[in-house]
Computed example of a mutant assay.
Amino acid sequence: MASSVSGNGLPTGCNVFTTLPDILFIPEFIFGGLVWTLVASTYVEPANPQGWVMFVSVFCFVFTTLWFFIFLCGANQGSIWPGLDVAYHFIAVVFYLSASVVLAYITIILGMGASASPIIFKVYQEDISAVVMAHVVTLLYFIHAILSALRWKSS
């Protein structure tokens, strides 16, 4: 991996694919998209906590995509961008942590009745997968936030 510090500390263009923490955009897309599709494909009961999980996964997926394209296009060359990078990833960590805890709680409740029906058991298994993916995405965003903070501090 190349050094993540160059100029103001943020890469542009294809350097996004070679610097740490920016290479983490790719697994954030993949696992965030998996959370989104797994939660969207399950039976939504209760609707309110699952709605929060969907909001977080869609919001972070769309905003990470925009953030990634800002980096690719090189529009991130101002002095404020390293701080914004840290702030966004910290907010994503807080959002995903809250969503993954809520999703885990709903999955535990669903699991109490999972043996009653094969359909509920299938939904339960999908929710377990979504919980695991949500925790993985939380970890990825956390690592990205820490490495972005270190980059910001050194620039």
Rank of each mutant, 00 (worst) to 15 (best):
A2S: 13
G7S: 13
N8H: 13
G9H: 04
P11T: 11
T12Y: 10
G13M: 10
N15P: 02
V16L: 13
V16G: 02
T19Q: 14
T19L: 03
P21T: 09
L24T: 08
I26T: 12
P27W: 05
E28S: 12
E28I: 15
I30N: 08
F31T: 07
G33H: 01
G33A: 12
V35M: 03
W36D: 05
L38T: 06
L38V: 06
T42C: 14
Y43C: 13
V44G: 00
E45F: 08
E45T: 12
M54Y: 01
M54N: 08
S57Q: 04
C60Q: 07
C60V: 03
T65S: 12
F69A: 11
I70K: 01
I70N: 02
F71V: 02
L72H: 01
C73I: 09
G74A: 07
G74R: 04
A75V: 09
Q77N: 12
Q77E: 12
G78E: 11
W81L: 02
W81E: 08
W81G: 04
L84R: 05
L84Y: 07
L84A: 09
D85N: 15
V86R: 00
Y88I: 00
F90L: 12
I91Q: 00
V93T: 09
Y96V: 04
A99H: 00
L103N: 01
A104K: 06
I106D: 06
I106M: 07
I109T: 09
L110C: 09
G111T: 03
M112A: 08
M112S: 06
M112W: 04
M112I: 05
A114P: 07
A114N: 09
S115P: 03
A116I: 03
A116C: 12
P118Y: 05
P118L: 06
F121C: 06
K122W: 00
V123E: 07
Q125A: 13
A130S: 11
A130V: 05
M133F: 15
M133P: 02
H135I: 10
V136L: 11
T138S: 11
F142Q: 06
I143P: 02
I143W: 03
H144D: 13
I146Y: 06
L147M: 13
S148V: 06
A149W: 08
A149C: 11
L150Y: 04
L150R: 11
W152V: 08
W152Q: 12
K153Y: 15
S154Q: 14
S155R: 01
S155T: 14
